[in-house]
Structure formats: structure tokens, C-alpha cells
Design a protein around this nucleic acid. Structure first.
Length: 220
DNA sequence: GACCAGGCACATC
DNA sequence: GATGTGCATGGT
């Protein structure tokens, strides 16, 4: 057994599922928008919403920042929670304009990760997962993203308590992995893939690549 | 028709 | 700090 369980888990998932090449999105700005739209929502629905924003010519900071909330809601309707997410996008854009003048994300390059994370978390509608997704995928910061899949997989394999906090779970990864953006990026993507393919609500445990490593999971 | 999907804010105890 | 609720579409 390896000294570093979390690295072993990563290697196992990587062997089983292959490289994932995340985040799906053409530009860092699009990734930020996607991070908000995908809150508690199937990615296929998010893609429809993103396609609509693009078709309307709004997938750039200046145009999106000018779009009225009502119209925004209509366009992102397929992503669900469209009224709330329209408001959240506008809240986010208020911060984004103040920070970059609605220019490219490179304006954020000199800002420390912890500082950026605090600022993102202060935006209404941006919680820890959304903030960390933006930091890791759009801004290439060394921050591990914890999501519902992460929680489910770790809990079923008895690596966390049911009520473990976000920060607690994140610390588990930060504390046991090399500090690396590509590693965090790929690891989270693999967890999501694993959660979709195997560690589902109705799990396919006989196909679980982690079975040899972690043994039989507990299913509640 | 029920369940699920890459959360979050807010109220309440 | 823990727990419960509203928000909503589209696929299975």
C-alpha cells in the first residue's frame, strides 16, 4: 500500500478513465460563466445555455456586463434556476468589471490566490465550489475543487464523515497531494467522471476501479 | 411520475 | 454549527 493514499486514488482513476482534459470551455471567461451556470445542474443543460449566450454575442465581459437581468434569464433558461442565476451572473459581472474593467482575465494575474478567493466568496451567489472552480480552471490557481461527487465517493469509502465541511475535505487533498494545478485539475475531473460512470446514486460497485484499493464501499 | 444533475442564500433552531 | 427549504430545466 502506498504512503499516499490520495495519490494512489488519483493514479487508479487515471488508469481507469484516462485523461479528462477539463474544463470544457473555450476561454477563461467562458469557464467562469459555466462555473456559475452549472450550480446543481447537469452540464448538458449548461451547454445549451452557453450556446444561447454565444448565439446572442454575449460571451464576453463587456457585452455580458451590459445585458439586462431579464434578458439574461431568458437566454440561460435551459440551465435551470434561471432567475437566480441571472442575478448571480450580474453580481459576478459587477465584481469582474470593478476588477478588470471588463477586459481579459489577465488583469487578475498579479493578485494573490487567497485574496482572489476571499473576493469571489464575497460575491452573492458564489460559494466555495464556484469560487474554487473559477480559481482552478479559469485562473489556473492551485486550489482543489470539492463537489458533490467528491463528497459521495469519499464518504462511501469511509474517508470522511457524512457531515465533513467543504474546507475539511479540501484540506485532505491539499495536505496529501503535491501542490499542482494540472494535478488538481485532472483529479477533480476524474472524480466527476467516476461519479457519473460508477459511483452514482445507484452505484455500479462491481465496476468500481477503486475497489481493490479501498475495499467495499458502504452505501448508507 | 420520480429521481437526478459539477450549489447557494437564507431562515431557524 | 447543523439542518431545512426554495430555486427549475431537461434527461433517464
Amino acid at each position: 500500500m502506498s504512503k499516499n493514499l490520495f495519490l494512489e486514488i488519483y493514479r487508479t482513476l487515471h488508469s481507469a478513465f484516462g485523461p479528462q482534459h477539463w474544463w470544457p470551455g473555450e476561454t477563461p471567461f467562458e469557464m467562469m460563466v459555466g462555473a456559475i451556470l452549472t450550480q446543481n445542474t447537469n452540464w448538458a443543460n449548461v451547454e445549451r445555455a452557453i450556446a444561447q449566450l454565444k448565439a446572442a454575442g454575449l460571451m464576453n465581459p463587456r457585452r455580458l456586463g451590459q445585458c439586462p437581468e431579464r434578458r439574461l434569464a431568458r437566454l440561460i433558461r435551459p440551465a435551470g434556476y434561471f432567475n437566480i442565476k441571472a442575478r448571480r451572473l450580474r453580481e459576478f459581472m459587477r465584481w469582474y468589471e470593478a476588477r478588470t474593467g471588463n477586459g481579459p482575465v489577465e488583469a487578475l494575474r498579479g493578485v494573490r490566490t487567497n485574496r482572489l478567493r476571499q473576493e469571489l466568496l464575497s460575491i452573492s451567489g458564489v460559494g466555495p465550489e464556484t469560487a474554487d472552480s473559477i480559481l482552478l480552471y479559469a485562473l489556473r490557481r492551485r486550489v482543489f475543487v470539492v463537489d458533490a461527487y467528491t463528497r459521495r465517493i469519499l464518504f462511501r469509502h469511509r474517508l470522511i464523515r457524512r457531515n465533513a465541511s467543504y474546507d475539511e475535505i479540501q484540506q485532505l487533498f491539499h495536505g496529501s497531494l503535491p501542490t499542482s494545478t494540472p494535478l488538481y485539475n485532472e483529479y477533480h475531473a476524474l472524480i466527476v467522471q467516476s461519479g457519473k460512470a460508477v459511483c452514482r446514486p445507484k452505484p455500479l460497485c462491481d465496476q468500481c476501479p477503486l475497489l481493490p484499493l479501498l475495499g467495499k464501499p458502504k452505501l448508507r
